[in-house]
Simulated scan of single mutants.
Amino acid sequence: MKILAAVTRAPHAAMTLETLEIDAPRDTEILVRVVATGVCHTDIVVRDGMLPTPLPAVLGHEGAGIVEAVGRKVTKVVPGDHVVMSYNSCGHCPSCDAHAPSYCHEFFPRNFLADRPDGTSALRGGDGMVHSNFFGQSSFATHAICHERNIVKVPREARLELLGPLACGIQTGAGAVFETHKVAEGQTVAVFGCGSVGLAALMAAKVAGAREIIAVDTNEARLDFARSIGATLTINPATTPATEAILKHTRYGVDHAIDTTGIAAVIRHAVDSLAPRGTCGMIGASAPGSEVTLDEVHFLSGGRRLVGIVEGGAIPDQLIPKLIALHAEGRFPFDRMVKFYPFAEINTAIADSENGHCIKPIVLMPEV
């Protein structure tokens, strides 16, 4: 069938809306009519050639939509189901067997190499193959092929066009708090970087009952937003040394620090802000080969920990429904971060995300 898709053809170039042909789903695949897709920083990184995703490709990995067709071996969903598409995993490696799919031993090829495992693509244009299967979906399109491993059935009463960002960015921030750090009531949390991932972590920290919720960012508007969703202290490191302020405010440091920036110096500040036995979670990364340096005595003597976090360490089938329920209760107001754009304005949505004009863009697909 014919679909409309935003195709990335060259690094740093604008995506072009093109009519492509999409395969019917194979035995284990699912065809979803995409209603809306969130724009994630990872899409921008890949567009700019910072990771080896082959081009031309259709990106997008926070898709929400309605199942249109399923392969004959699919049992998880049926046509008509409302779904969110999240990250992909293999289902048979040691991590997947241990119910830790975000650390799948095949995570990189399953999500970034933008082809099926057999090297084929579900998409074709007038000049040949267009790479698909980005994060098991390629949802910057009116239709996407995905898999049972990365599809999550959601309630019909939930606002479907709002749910895509739960698949990656918001799942990552909230999952870091709920699943990896397992923040307990009365503990203290500092979040470095208040984009959509960091703000989701702040919302989750409030749900978890953290006693102190500290937001660190150089953008005053983001700090204002952080206060409005529960931050008890905000710090602009451009004017106030963050570590000193945190230690002064908490006396011993925080139980949990979460870095979303991927900047080595900021990660060092986050670790230095930890109380004894505290944990710092790294969500962002600057580039392959980047390094972080730590004060060995400070790190070792306090029994502090530094842990890498992918997708929050979450299982999408468990966390996404939880976040939808919390939102329905008014306890996880992620909708306040969102701005909607028509699909034809996808490049504007990406630019607004890059320049900070929008916290979390969502592109709405045209009716087909």
Rank of each mutant, 00 (worst) to 15 (best):
L20C: 09
L20R: 06
D127A: 14
M15K: 14
P109G: 05
N111C: 08
V77A: 05
F112M: 15
V35H: 09
A57C: 12
L17T: 09
M15L: 15
V32D: 02
V130D: 10
A36F: 07
A64W: 00
T16R: 15
A114M: 01
H61V: 04
A100D: 14
F140A: 12
V77Y: 05
C40I: 02
S102E: 02
L4F: 07
I30D: 00
E29S: 05
C40D: 02
C40M: 01
P54C: 13
L55C: 07
S86K: 02
C104V: 09
A6P: 03
K2G: 06
G49I: 13
Q137N: 03
E18S: 02
N111K: 07
P101D: 08
V39Q: 00
S86P: 01
A141T: 00
V58Y: 00
G126P: 13
S139H: 07
N133T: 09
S89R: 04
L51V: 11
P25Y: 03
N133G: 07
L17G: 08
C40F: 00
A69N: 09
G136A: 04
M85E: 05
G38S: 09
R110M: 15
K73F: 10
G60E: 04
T142N: 07
F112Y: 15
M50A: 13
I66M: 03
P54W: 13
T75I: 06
P56F: 03
A122W: 04
V45P: 09
E106I: 05
G63L: 03
Q137G: 08
H82G: 06
N88W: 06
A69K: 12
A14E: 14
L55D: 06
P11G: 03
A24D: 13
S86C: 00
G119L: 09
P56V: 09
E29G: 06
C96P: 12
M129L: 09
D27I: 01
E68A: 07
V58K: 00
F135Y: 15
V130A: 13
T75G: 09
E106G: 10
V39R: 01
F112V: 14
H99Y: 13
P54I: 13
C93G: 06
V130H: 10
I3G: 02
S139K: 01
H12Y: 14
G60Y: 01
H99K: 12
D23H: 14
E18G: 02
R110P: 08
D81P: 02
K73A: 14
A141K: 01
S121P: 03
S132D: 11
A114T: 01
M129S: 07
T28N: 13
P52S: 11
A24S: 14
Y103M: 12
P56L: 05
V70S: 10
S86W: 00
A36T: 03
V7P: 00
A36N: 03
M15N: 13
R33P: 02
T28H: 14
A6F: 07
C40L: 05
T28P: 05
G60A: 11
L31E: 04
N111T: 05
G60W: 02
H41F: 07
A69Y: 07
R72C: 13
L113P: 06
Y103D: 08
